[in-house]
Amino acid sequence: MRAKLRNILVLSLIIILVVAPFFVNQNASFGGADGEAEGIIKGLAPKYKPWFGSFWTPPSGEIESLLFSLQAAVGALIIGYYIGYKRAKHEPGENSEQ
């Protein structure tokens, strides 16, 4: 049970770290800011022009979030499958006492 407690503790820490920003920084825009670095580049080298563009850019925010979700889903599927597989192997049968 100690392990379980430890996991719960770690999980709560993660949640705190992720949620805290909304309280700490209530007026922030929370943009995904590759843009900020690009802004600094513009400041440091005003004449610099990106010499190459992306081959393809998701046509909308929806499509972009679709692809990001897909990426997360594929990864989570594999990890979830593995966890289930390993646990079932470890504790076979519904009535096994552990």
């Binding site: 992720v18 920003p21 909304f22 920084n25 922030a28 929370f30 943009g31 995904g32 800011a33 990001f68």
Partner: peptide
Amino acid sequence: KIPSITGSC
């Protein structure tokens, strides 16, 4: 993309 206390993700 996770929010950070600096106010961005």
